[in-house]
Amino acid sequence: MSDKDLKIVSVETTILDVPLIRPHKFATTTADAQPILLVAVTTAGGVTGYGEGVVPGGPWWGGESVETMKAIVDRYIAPYITGRGVDDITGIMVDLERIVANARFAKAAVDVALHDAWARSLGVPVHTLLGGAFRTGVDVRWALGAAPLEEIVEEVTHKMEQRLNFAFKLKMGALDPVVDTERVVKVVEAFDGKVGFSIDVNARWDRFTALRHVPQLVDGGVELIEQPTPADQLDVLAEINRRVAAPVMADESVQTPHDAYEVATRGAADVIALKTTKCGGLQRSKQVVAVVKAAGLRCHGATSIEGPIGTAASVHFACAEPGIDYGSELFGPQLFAVELLQRPLEYSDGRVHLPQGPGLGVELDMDVVKRLTRD
């Protein structure tokens, strides 16, 4: 293989709309389908690598959408990186910072596609480019919908009986806080401590509301509190963290290495939700994890409801990065009503397993991709 074989000859983007098995509720919106920007990077040697541009539920979370990502990649990123080598990931991603500010979800899609193409060109898995895998899978926490108590109990019981998941997350923030808190405590009490539950408020409560209800949730048995208050109010998050015994996890508050530094120095969280999407890809994720590890905090492998490409990338990252030491919620493909891969990712024994083979170790079913492509 010569350097010429590694030259990027095309960068193509496709928007997919993938239906979900049930509506997935966030604090401010509900998704019935997950839009995905599929980015394909092809080399002169005929190798194609894929990445996903995915945001959780639309632009409400971080200001990006599949439509904005497509415009950024097509107009500003693709022309700039065409002709460069897929092995020049560090240089490309550094240079992109001078061309496009922020847009971390779009950059993550390109970063992953470059890793996939380079690893496939070398005939090695992506985790090799990250230092090699030291484990073969990670634990997966399942996110529950906003269903009645009986349905949630049935869903949790089914997941446990199938040995798919042993820990669960409940979304909050959309209902009246009093009603929401009572609902969650009833779910937790229904399992009498036999199941681990976390909650995620998606940064929608103010200080007063959080100080009133987070202690009630912890007293009710919730084991992890995720981002109860706005992302930029780190002093408020730190106050909550000091007042409750359960660990507090920062998600919206941490998207860059500096964000991680600020959270750590203020004592605003015990755990960081690490999304390879919101951080801008695998390279930038390593920088965030390094800061978190140096501060003595833990990292949770979080999700933006990625499809199998984005999920596979996060699994490779988690299996090669010891700093992902607080489990994961890489359940995205389990929520999809349609299988995008020729061979699905493996979920069993409460874990998602590292796919084998070159690149990300997964192969898209292009017939399904074509059927789900947005006109």
Rank of each mutant, 00 (worst) to 15 (best):
Q287S: 11
T136F: 00
E339Y: 12
G327Y: 06
E151P: 02
V184F: 01
I36V: 15
N165E: 03
E182A: 14
E161N: 15
D259S: 10
A78R: 09
K293M: 10
V73S: 09
D251N: 13
A231V: 02
H353F: 06
H213T: 03
V185M: 06
F197S: 11
D270R: 13
D95P: 01
G123Q: 08
A238T: 00
E182S: 07
Q34M: 13
A273S: 15
V195N: 10
V66I: 02
A71D: 11
V187R: 02
I305P: 00
K70D: 01
Q283D: 09
A101D: 07
G51V: 09
D367N: 13
P322Y: 06
R371Q: 15
C279M: 11
V369N: 11
L364V: 04
G310K: 11
V218T: 04
A101S: 14
Y80V: 14
E150G: 03
A290H: 07
L164N: 13
R163L: 07
N102H: 14
T68W: 10
V156F: 03
A108P: 02
P79I: 07
S198F: 00
K278L: 07
A313L: 05
V156H: 04
D270H: 15
E97L: 07
K293C: 07
I324K: 12
V126I: 10
F134Q: 08
D206S: 06
D375T: 11
F166D: 13
R104D: 01
I225C: 01
A31S: 15
A167N: 14
A113S: 09
A33K: 14
H258I: 13
K275D: 03
I15A: 04
S285P: 08
Y80G: 00
Q233V: 00
V291G: 03
V18S: 09
V248Y: 10
A294K: 02
A117K: 06
A268T: 09
W142N: 14
A113C: 04
Q216R: 15
V271E: 07
H24A: 08
M366F: 12
V289S: 04
T311C: 14
E252W: 04
H158M: 11
S285L: 04
S285D: 04
K286P: 00
A231Y: 11
R141E: 13
I36W: 02
D111T: 11
D180W: 04
T13F: 10
V185H: 09
I152T: 15
E97C: 10
E189P: 02
P215M: 10
A313N: 06
L130S: 07
L234V: 03
T181F: 02
V73T: 12
E67K: 05
P19E: 07
G323F: 04
G281Y: 07
T128E: 15
S65W: 01
P79A: 10
A294T: 05
V244I: 15
G57E: 09
